[in-house]
């Protein structure tokens, strides 16, 4: 079929393209329906519109009131600050630590490097709830100077530092895995040339390998930002002060009194989704090119 008459093949491939586009559009529409429904309802009044006329009636008026109210009642500003206080340091630490392990294990051969890669990767795949109770006790019994946290619990428990720690412990696994695969694709010659120049292990890592890993960092930053940002479990079980909790708990706050005020929750949902969406759109290109999970053996 590849050797058919050229006219027919052009017609064929145009037909194919149209079919393909149609298929992709249909899927995209199906994907968007739930989002659009939620978005629309976030611009409507609940009591005097949705509840009276039904969820899918034509809105009487569109309003931004839901956004304003969700912003105030949900304490979104403070919660967002909390989330950033957790996510940003955690992200930096995760990328730093995992790149160190990945570097040591993928660029040097020593006895236990496979063991460590396995350990980190397997740990990341563990169901998180399974380890919660012992972890709670460990944090509770680990003294932590109040100076290094913004609370006065005296132990790690109840501080954002604890949440950062558990994120780092968990997510380092996945990042180590991706980064070690990525580093293996960097030619050894680069390191060897540096070695001849007398560069230490640390300088090779810091000045040669790390800059080359930028695409992988971009990809991981996107994924990890999404995961950490959306974490609800650790943020709520390890932080006993409501004012310390991350943004995912804002929806929980709105969920009581207004449990049936879908429009208000929809507005909060939209606001909460914005940062992750923005990060994804901004890093989309690097995201795809940097996420080398170990493909391409040529």
């Amino acid at each position: 079929m590849s050797s058919g008459a050229s006219v027919q093949s052009v017609g064929d491939s145009r037909m194919k393209r149209v079919l393909l586009q149609t298929f992709l559009i249909v899927v995209a529409v199906a994907w968007l329906i739930p989002m659009v429904a939620a978005l629309l309802s976030s611009f409507r009044y609940f009591e005097r519109d949705t509840q009276v006329n039904g969820v899918f009636s034509w809105p009487e008026t569109l309003t931004l009131d839901n956004y304003r109210e969700a912003w105030e009642v949900g304490g979104i500003k403070n919660a967002f600050a909390n989330t950033m206080f957790i996510v940003l340091p955690a992200l930096v630490l995760i990328l730093l630590l995992s790149s160190m392990v990945a570097y040591a294990c993928s660029r040097y051969s020593w006895k236990f490097n496979v063991f460590f890669l396995v350990l980190f990767t397997a740990g990341n795949l563990m169901p998180q709830q399974v380890i919660f109770q012992p972890l709670f006790r460990i944090f509770k019994n680990t003294p932590w100077p109040d100076l290094l946290s913004d609370t006065d619990t005296g132990s790690l428990l109840g501080t954002k530092v604890a949440v950062i720690f558990i994120h780092v412990a968990f997510q380092t696994g996945f990042c180590t895995f991706v980064l070690s695969n990525y580093m293996k694709t960097i030619p050894k010659e680069l390191g060897e040339a540096a070695m001849v120049d007398g560069a230490s292990v640390w300088r090779q890592y810091w000045q040669i390998i790390l800059p080359l890993c930028r695409p992988a960092f971009a990809a991981l930053a996107t994924l990890e930002f999404t995961w950490l940002y959306n974490d609800f479990f650790w943020g709520s079980v390890l932080l006993n002060q409501g004012s310390e909790r991350p943004i995912t708990s804002s929806i929980a706050v709105l969920n009581g009194q207004y449990a049936s005020d879908y429009n208000l929750i929809a507005a909060a949902s939209m606001m909460i989704a914005l940062p992750t969406l923005a990060v994804y759109l901004a890093l989309q290109k690097q995201f795809i090119s940097g996420l080398t999970l170990g493909a391409n053996k040529g």
Partner: peptide
Amino acid sequence: NTVDHNTYQE
């Protein structure tokens, strides 16, 4: 210290 009631109970 206000915590959303559902999480508080949980």
